[in-house]
Amino acid sequence: MFPAPIERQSSSVQALYRIALPVALVLWLLPLIAVALTSVRSAGDITAGNYWGWPSSFNLVENYTAIFENTPIGKYILNSFRVTIPTVMGAVALSCMTGFALAVYGFRANLLVFFMFVAGNFVPFQILMVPVRDLTLQMGLYNTITGLALFHIAFQTGFCTLFMRNFIKALPKELIEAARVEGVSEVRIFWYVVLPLMKPAIAALSVLIFTFIWNDYFWATVLTQGADSQPITAGLYSLNGQWVASWHLVSAGSIVAALPPVAMFFLMQRHFIAGLTLGAVK
């Protein structure tokens, strides 16, 4: 293990490390801690300029009720779920199939198709922006949840295919060979042999895509407008305009927007990190 385990050091070094850990953590998360504290401050604290001291009163319920009652934030959150969940399901379903095809079959265009997905996954969003917006308009899906989700599904399929293909490629080939010898059809091999083994990959991709899409801001501003279809990221931006200097409300809104991906991360941490660090170890 590197660096050398701290247990091998003198007890004073160990004590120092134990103190340094929480101190470093507080400094690292200071911006977030400040936001969390501010989200429970009173409007009085804000006008008095008490941003960094201890709150004079804890208005947790008041502030959070206020943002849900006075703004469409609940609607934005709901929209985020309505975009994110179908995207996760769609992109994962499509990439299970594309990943399977690219990992199992040695046809001629295999690498070409695979590289198309990988390269497309890296292109700057701006080069897609105008044509994708046009396409969405032509399909009559501009400013709809469906239009936004469809684009996300298509785009995320690139990254998901890279992930799934490499995952399936690492599975033992003998399983598929054995099934073929038994005369099992290709579709049934996919469904009954490979898919059950893909559960960890499906879990990892699901949490990862959930977070990516939940946090998407660019496409939300390009393909939607207004509280009827905009997700929370774009919503928070427009609310920030309304809440000029009401930092306790901005903070409460930010916390609400951050909660779902944070909860997802903590619940599925192992899968999340497995997905994110794909390829970081040989």
Binding site: M97, V113, M116, G120, V123, I127, P131, A154, T161
Partner: peptide
Amino acid sequence: GVLMFLFYVIFPV
């Protein structure tokens, strides 16, 4: 997957 990727990513480029 390929069709959606072509229409939303590759052709737009």
